[in-house]
Each structure stands twice: as C-alpha cells, then as structure tokens.
C-alpha cells in the first residue's frame, strides 16, 4: 500500500489546464523530489493534495484511504502536513505560539473555552522541543515579525514537524536562504525519521538531490519523467524541458 497515491488528478482554472492526468505513488518512507520549470503545476499539485484546491477529476489516497472529498481541515488529522513556499505565519505572535497553534490543531484541547492555553505544559514543552530541533529555542519568545526570513522558513518546518506527520509536503524549503542557512535546513531535513514519507518541491538541485530517493519531473501540469536521479538526469525529455531541443 502506498503512503500517498494520486491517480489521474486534473485541475483547470477557466480554460487553463494546470494539472492533467497526474498519477503518482509514494511508498512509505520514500523521499520524492518534484522538479519542473515555473508554472509546471507543482504548487497546484500540493494544494490539491491538501484540499486547498478541489480537483476536477482524479483521486487522492492516503495509506489506502480515499481523501479526495475530505475537507482540508480533516487531512492533517490523518497524518498529512505541509510547508508553504510563501510564508503564511501568525506575524503578531511569538515563535512558540506559532508552533503551539500547529500542535493544538491536532489536539482535542483546541475546543476548550475554559482552560488556559499558557498553562498547557505538555503542549508547550513539545512546541519548545520542536523549536529546539530547528535551532530556534533561544528565540521562542520573540514575535515572528521580528525574525529573519531564514528563521521563518525554519519555523514553517517546525510547525509541520511538530504535527508528527506521516506524509510531509515541503514547498521549496530552501528558497531564499543563505548558504549557511541551506546547510542548517539540509541537516534538519536529513534528520527527519526515515518512516516519514516526504514529497519536496525544490529548484536547488544540489541540496535537494542528496535528500531524494526518486525524482519526478513535471511540465505543463503533467508528469514527464520519473525515476532515480541518474535516470531522470539522463533522460532526453529532461533536457528538452530545461533546455529546449
């Protein structure tokens, strides 16, 4: 059984077909890299997997369970988490509060109107540990608005990891980072337990290729090539897509 199985997924905006007949299967624990030029439909694919966009046709299954019709909010509860290319965090809140909110999203405690959130020691300690795992423990009490771009990227990752996902979608986790920050994030991603299935969009091949088991190349909303690193690099279609022919 695949961890994530996508079958014939299609999506159009008006007359523009952004995803067409995408079929993809990720085994449990697999690390898959999705590459492709801008506008290839990579982020749209992520939005379809999380339910933020509704597909026109096709099906998505998580560990054999069909989640195509499931609302976005139900999917994290089944072990699906993602990061965003464009950072959407809670700017007025502290880093710790951001990560705590992520953790709270999966806890039944989120419905309580009586208890005090700042007294939920177990929850907060786990959030703090998640911040520590991305090297931001010292900044836990700082408002997000006063942090750097690289730090926010790491908060994004901490928010996804703290939910202990079984399937993790990473949308350009290295975008806009300095060389040093790249090293940190690469080390961080490499340290994620092997049983977590990862699907990553990334343009920076050098760092991404090290992490990936298999690579999928997308172009104009379709999957063009899929295989190991060597297979994809050697494939004539890859050259076509990137360099024209």
């Amino acid at each position: 059984m695949s961890a994530l199985a996508i079958k014939d997924l299609g999506k159009s905006f008006g007359g523009l077909r952004v995803t067409a007949g995408v079929t993809l299967a990720l085994e449990a624990g697999e690390r898959r890299l999705i590459i492709g030029p801008n506008g290839a439909g990579k982020t749209t694919l992520f939005n379809l997997i999380t339910g933020e966009l509704k597909p026109d046709d096709g099906a998505i299954a998580l560990f054999g369970r069909d989640i195509t019709a499931l609302p976005t909010r139900a999917r994290p509860h089944l072990g699906l988490a993602r990061t965003y290319q464009i950072i959407t965090l809670f700017a007025q809140e502290t880093l710790l509060h951001n990560v705590t909110l992520s953790l709270l999203g999966l806890s039944p405690l989120r419905w309580s109107p009586f208890r005090r959130l700042d007294r939920q020691a177990v929850l907060i300690e786990r959030a703090r540990a998640a911040l520590a795992s991305v090297g931001l423990e010292a900044l836990a009490g700082r408002p997000l608005a006063q942090t750097s771009y690289g730090e926010r990227r790491r908060v994004e990752i901490a928010m996804a990891l703290v939910q202990q996902p079984k399937v993790l979608l990473l949308d350009e986790p290295f975008a806009g980072l300095s060389v040093d920050e790249r090293k940190d994030v690469r080390r961080l991603l490499a340290s994620i337990p092997r049983d977590v299935t990862m699907l990553m969009i990334e343009h920076d091949m050098d760092v991404a290729l090290e992490l990936a088991d298999r690579i999928t190349l997308m172009h104009f909303g379709q999957i063009v090539v899929e295989g190991s690193r060597a297979e994809v690099v050697a494939h004539p279609r890859t050259r076509e897509v990137y360099f024209g022919s």
Partner: peptide, 11 residues
C-alpha cells in the same frame, strides 16, 4: 489572522 492556514493545520 490566517484562516486558510488554520484549516491546513487541522482547525
């Protein structure tokens, strides 16, 4: 502050 993000977080 972030309604869409909140759905994606499971709310």
């Amino acid at each position: 502050d972030q309604p869409r993000r909140m759905s994606a977080l499971g709310y």
